[in-house]
Design a protein around this nucleic acid. Sequence first.
DNA 1: CGTCACAGTGAATCTAAAG
DNA 2: GCTTTAGATTCACTGTGAC
Lengths: 360, 360
Amino acid sequence: MGTGIDLPLDQVMVGDCLDMLRQLPPASVHAIFADPPYNLQLKGSLVRPEGGRVDGVDDAWDRFDSFPAYDAFTRAWLTECRRVLRKDGTIWVIGAYHNVFRLGTALQDLGYWILNDVVWRKSNPMPNFRGRRFTNAHETMIWASRGPESRYKFNYAAMKSLNDDVQMRSDWLIPLCTGAERLRDEDGKKVHPTQKPEALLHRVILSCTSPGEVVLDPFMGSGTTAAVAKRLGRRFIGIERDETYAAAAQARIDAITPMPESAALSLPAKREQPRVPFGTLVERGLVPAGSRLVDRHRRWKAEVGADGTLRCGKAVGSIHKVGAAVQEAPSCNGWLFWHVEHPNGSLRLLDELRAEIAGS
Amino acid sequence: MGTGIDLPLDQVMVGDCLDMLRQLPPASVHAIFADPPYNLQLKGSLVRPEGGRVDGVDDAWDRFDSFPAYDAFTRAWLTECRRVLRKDGTIWVIGAYHNVFRLGTALQDLGYWILNDVVWRKSNPMPNFRGRRFTNAHETMIWASRGPESRYKFNYAAMKSLNDDVQMRSDWLIPLCTGAERLRDEDGKKVHPTQKPEALLHRVILSCTSPGEVVLDPFMGSGTTAAVAKRLGRRFIGIERDETYAAAAQARIDAITPMPESAALSLPAKREQPRVPFGTLVERGLVPAGSRLVDRHRRWKAEVGADGTLRCGKAVGSIHKVGAAVQEAPSCNGWLFWHVEHPNGSLRLLDELRAEIAGS
DNA sequence: CGTCACAGTGAATCTAAAG
DNA sequence: GCTTTAGATTCACTGTGAC
């Protein structure tokens, strides 16, 4: 990694988010997950139909006097995060309708480039007791790169695998953090009011980091980000102001055993696999020089040159160039266009032949 | 109603949104649905894997010079809308991640009170062709009252009955506007690039208005809001700058017959089939990454990857692919082949685990 | 008339490595 | 930095035409 010299890796920094962020070197973390205070502005307490009181979020850290005050706070920590984020890093920010629009606006104004907004659909949300609104059944995460030209990382194949081999969508159905996963104190009271489910962080961290990379959480709370990062073989930096939360998180993290690296590595995408030039197939006699390639419908035939070029009428060049030329298309992936014709008449795609010799 | 004296009811006002809004009397409409330009900021063109080109939104009306320019425009029309909205009225605003955070921030800054953000989940979105992001499968609507103390209308019972007698949630699954509903010209070209589905407006209008009340759409486009309002026995006011759009909308509206009020409450609720990808079991810790699966006879063991892939010797891939590979069979249903082994030695079929979490 | 194969399409901020 | 080239990449649904 090369930049990790001064990084307090795999630690919880106890202190103010801004103070701690300022101690980190620039361009040093691969990903950030931030679950900032929600600015909920609840008035009075909410009472359930049967009389019980709803244990809502009314902690002091969650109250701001005004939108400008909240915006100033938001811009301050997002500015520091952008400094700390590597050029190719990405940030995730989660919020609900009370604050997420301020977060998104601030991200854009500070130069971040939004890649997706991702909806966490809660399978078991709290109902709306008064029947005055729709059940508030989701929260929104914003995924952004450092800027519009960033070459950010996205583990497309891993996300596709997670979703039964179809593209992962921007709406994720995941249950709330309940049961054994929810941290509770001796009295059975929940340690943190907004503990996020590990399944959510599993998908987030898997989507945009590789094993060994560094994930920063500037509002660590109960430590879900750090716990999942450790389990997935990533490094983490957690920042938490509240000492009770920090201690609970530390104990939780200590109990985690990382999974074997073979499990943490996701299936490499095709574009990350070693390349086999077409000329190699010619050299090895799989596609002999002088033989002919055809497209799927046998509309075009092309002759293979000893140097790995194709010829089809006037078109001469790589399998891609000639494929594009005969179709009069702007571009073409020759591997998926040209076929070898067997004497028995069956066709084999070049891409299949390539797969056979990859790794040999 | 009492305020309708000067209202141009059930008409399309052709002209600039701000000019037309200023002609309307204050506190005169019960609900507003606004689908403003998204400021998509598309650069070059996008080519599909098979070679086709995406017909993107490149209309002049969607181009703004900067975020401040877009914000100024947004604040101007939202200010006029607030003046025109009755005290007990509500507004819906729809957008995507490009603009919706600006919209929400402006709403809050102008004194509106957000009641819900509602996610329109598209059942058939366009995929992400380059595999560089999550499929952009939703848009966001913000529902807000005129201010924090508003006595707004919410037809809770109607929403509940629309949803099989459980509270309507904040995430709605509705298909894109395609097929016969999509307005097309003589050449078969779509009349408007972003026509909204009637099912979406059906739910919106039904949720917050009564028959006879007035719905305003300041960016009417192809007229979906007006068409649904008329069908549901509501009055409408449409504003549209583009004469072609306005004419198409007028023709569409003229062809509508209002439905009897009793019928307004029946909407085929699309049941969701609970499809659970194997990766979900991994994320949720039911089948931990790094653990092993075995077949019924314990002849093969496979390691579970964090991305939901299996590894068994050289075979890597989905539970189905690896199941087929080890058996040297053409195909295999991994759900019925692989088992989790308990510490006590008993086996549980994956399909049983899946059944447990289906729908949660 | 049914079935199947194939083409078309939808608010899209859509590449990465080598030279 | 730049330009050039290789080559990776799609889901759900609708409509049409062949058989």
